Simulated assay, not measured.
Amino acid sequence: MAAACARTLVSKVGWSLLQRPAARRPGTGTVSYLLGNVSARGSRRTYGTGVHRSTLLSSLRAGGARALGCAFLLGGGLGLYQTVKLSVRQQQHRAEEEEEEGGTKAAGRDLKLTLYQYKTCPFCSKVRAFLDFYGLPYEVVEVNPVMRKELKWSTYRKVPILMVQDGVQLNDSSVIISSLRTYLINKDKSMSEVIRCYPELKSVNDSGKEVTEYSNKYWLMLSEERNAETYPEKGMQKEEMKWRKWADDWLVHLISPNVYRTTGEALASFDYIVREGKFGAFEGFFAKYVGAAAMFLIAKRLKSRHNLQDDVRQDLYKAVNDWVAAIGKKRKFMGGDRPNLADLAVFGVLRVMEGLQAFDDMMDNSKVQHWYRRMEKATLEHEGRD
């Protein structure tokens, strides 16, 4: 600002000099006085041809004043041009920085994420599917399911837990997904501000056990404008929320009865769990054999609790066929050309059965295969990143 004011003053001085009369006497102004002194001292040596001294002085003063005035104007103009040019560059730079900050947040690169999980947990798999699809970098801490020493710092003892920088802790798979998606869309909100929209609700269930639930867990907390951009067609938001809830309340309860359907399948499932999880040697042996037997019995109880058929595979086939029918033949995903949060939730739940007999049977005896392979590609290639 000071430089700009100085250049403006110089320009004004130069213009006033140009407006002065050419024949002003020496001593009436600083510029004329300086030019007069120079002319007086050098006139006889320089001009020895008999030209009248006063005429030479008058001409020199007039020409010198105009020349100096032009110089002032030229200098001021160049200074003003450079000032404007610099100001424009600074504004462009600030705009680029703001755009880069927005782009960084939209891509989630400003987040430092650490996921505490069991790899074979369907709720943890849901979170990984979301993070992978949107290309969000994250570290994984595999929790020992017996001792859970990795969670001793937390009063919340379930997985998944997602830690964000500045000590922000996100619990519950659906809350993690909803709050992160809200954050990526709402560029003007911090993660701490977003998570306040999903308050904890503690209650006691019918068994007398305290349980924790979360308000708004299937909602994205967006302004009307952002909401309209995210869900441009009528019914899209309601459909997404309905099927996300379906994945938590129904689909996930079909996993255990199917992967522990027989003693052989239970043993194969626990072999996979031990291989992929974090167990000590004794814990692994104990989990594989004792755990397999226990889960075989628990699966029978779950079948009764959820009113499943004797052949629980039929309930699994029907569930995924209902899902594919809801997508329809005209859409690649429930989200249209790109997966939405319901697609990611269903995919995450089903993915934990990969490598087991239940998964192979599902792919062979239902209509879910083509959608599943599209989802697999979308998450592996981080198609939501752009």
Rank of each mutant, 00 (worst) to 15 (best):
T263D: 10
H253A: 08
A292M: 08
V259C: 09
A287I: 05
T263N: 10
G280M: 04
L254D: 00
G284F: 04
E265W: 14
R261E: 06
E265S: 14
Y260G: 03
E283P: 05
R261N: 08
Y272N: 14
F270L: 14
G280Y: 01
W250F: 13
G280S: 08
R275I: 08
K278W: 06
R275S: 14
T262M: 14
G280K: 00
I255N: 04
F279Y: 05
G291C: 08
L267N: 06
I273D: 02
R261H: 07
V274I: 07
S269A: 06
E265C: 12
V252H: 02
I255K: 00
F285C: 10
Y289F: 15
I273P: 02
D249C: 12
Y260A: 05
F282W: 13
A266S: 15
L254Q: 00
T263L: 13
H253V: 11
K278R: 10
W250D: 10
G280H: 05
T263P: 09
T262V: 15
T263M: 13
G277W: 01
T262P: 15
S269M: 03
I273W: 00
E276L: 13
L267T: 11
G264M: 15
P257I: 00
T262S: 15
S269W: 02
G264L: 15
L254K: 00
W250L: 09
V259A: 04
I255P: 02
L267Y: 12
D249R: 08
K278C: 11
Y289M: 07
V274M: 03
K288S: 10
E276P: 06
F286E: 05
T263Q: 10
E276K: 10
D249M: 12
V259W: 07
A266G: 01
A268M: 10
N258P: 08
F279E: 01
S256I: 09
G280I: 01
T262D: 13
A287P: 08
V290F: 15
Y289E: 06
F282G: 02
S269N: 04
I273H: 02
S269D: 00
R275A: 14
F285H: 03
E265D: 15
F279A: 01
R275W: 12
G284E: 03
H253K: 04
F270P: 07
A287E: 06
L251Q: 00
F286M: 11
G264C: 15
P257W: 01
A266L: 05
F286A: 05
P257K: 00
R275V: 11
K288A: 11
G284L: 01
I273R: 02
H253T: 07
